[in-house]
């Protein structure tokens, strides 16, 4: 289908982007990889006045190492993330989750930052970013600010990025110690969105689970941390029984939606099964 008419800007620097956003009128949309924006425009569910295309902003692409963090440019494509040695070394959970995103074609165009700012509850990367305590660097007219993942995801399809602002990069902290990670995704067909997914990162120490971070995908309007599971796992023995007992708390406090793929109670059940499996794998059980 054909989108409604719109103005189009294609800046080449972040400063130009911010200027275009400021001048774009009432309803300005940022076009990153376009994997969500273009379909909703073609279906005329979105009819922005101006589209600001980030495709030529070179400074937004790429992965680099900066002290104790891995910094991922917002316009780095999923396939570039997958191919990146730093990601593989320091954030294998990101690589594992990214590999499950849609299909090759989508991963070639879709971007790391675009997926996070879009903040679809069924998207895979938000829960991973939340589990890894990523920091988000946002540029705006007043300069740059950095906020943590726990404050970044605000509501359904809504993040802390305000009108006139742009997500520039995401900082993934290098984790110290012996971490195991796993992303357990549940969907019906390979290219589909997650019905439920669980991102687990587990630090083992002397046969025990010293620390666990669990992110839940599609268990509410925003990604969630399974705090009760994390608390139950902290210091627990690394045994299947202990993991199962902790995972039983996975759905506590969640309010997942009911839709074609799953009703809420089934999603909550899945969260416990997938949490058990994700933690078990991450813990090497």
């Amino acid at each position: 289908m054909i989108p409604a008419p719109f103005e189009y800007a294609r800046p080449t620097t972040v400063d130009e982007v911010l200027q275009a956003l400021a001048e774009g009128g009432e309803d300005v949309k940022v076009l990153a990889g376009g994997q969500s924006l273009i379909p909703v425009m073609r279906l005329r569910l979105a009819a922005p006045e101006t589209v600001v295309d980030l495709g030529r902003v070179a400074e937004l692409r790429g992965v680099r190492e900066e002290d104790d963090a891995i910094v991922v440019g917002a316009m780095t494509t999923h396939s570039d993330v997958l191919a990146d040695p730093l990601i593989r070394q320091y954030a294998p959970l990101v690589a594992e989750a990214t590999a499950t995103v849609a299909d090759r074609q989508v991963r070639h165009r879709g971007t790391f930052g675009g997926a996070l700012v879009h903040a679809d509850p069924a998207g895979d990367l938000p829960a991973v970013a939340l589990a890894l305590d990523a920091d988000f660097v946002i540029a705006g007219p007043e300069g740059r600010r950095t906020i943590g993942a726990s404050e970044f995801f605000v509501d359904y399809l809504t993040t802390a990025v305000q009108e006139g602002e742009l997500l520039v990069e995401v900082r993934l902290p290098k984790l110290a110690g012996s971490w195991g990670m796993h992303y357990a995704k549940f969907n019906r067909v390979a290219q589909a969105w997650s019905i439920v997914a669980v991102a687990a990162a587990v630090r083992r120490e002397d046969g025990r689970i010293a620390e666990a971070r669990i992110g839940l995908t599609n268990m509410g309007p925003t990604p969630l941390r399974a705090r009760q599971v994390e608390e139950a796992l902290a210091g627990a023995e690394a045994t299947p029984e202990a993991v199962a007992a902790a995972a039983a708390h996975a759905a506590e406090g969640t309010e997942p939606s009911s839709d074609l793929n799953a009703q809420a109670d089934y999603r909550q059940h899945l969260a416990t099964v997938l949490t058990r499996r994700a933690v078990s794998t991450a813990a090497g059980l």
């Binding site: 379909p39 909703v40 979105a46 009819a47 809504t158």
Partner: peptide, 25 residues
């Protein structure tokens, strides 16, 4: 029966009026 609500994943159904301004990016 399956729940007939749409999924979160940008699905639309025929009840969607044309031309709403979405929050998608």
């Amino acid at each position: 029966d399956r729940a007939s609500a749409r999924t979160n994943a940008q699905a639309v159904d025929s009840s969607d009026a044309p031309s709403t301004t979405g929050g998608a990016r």
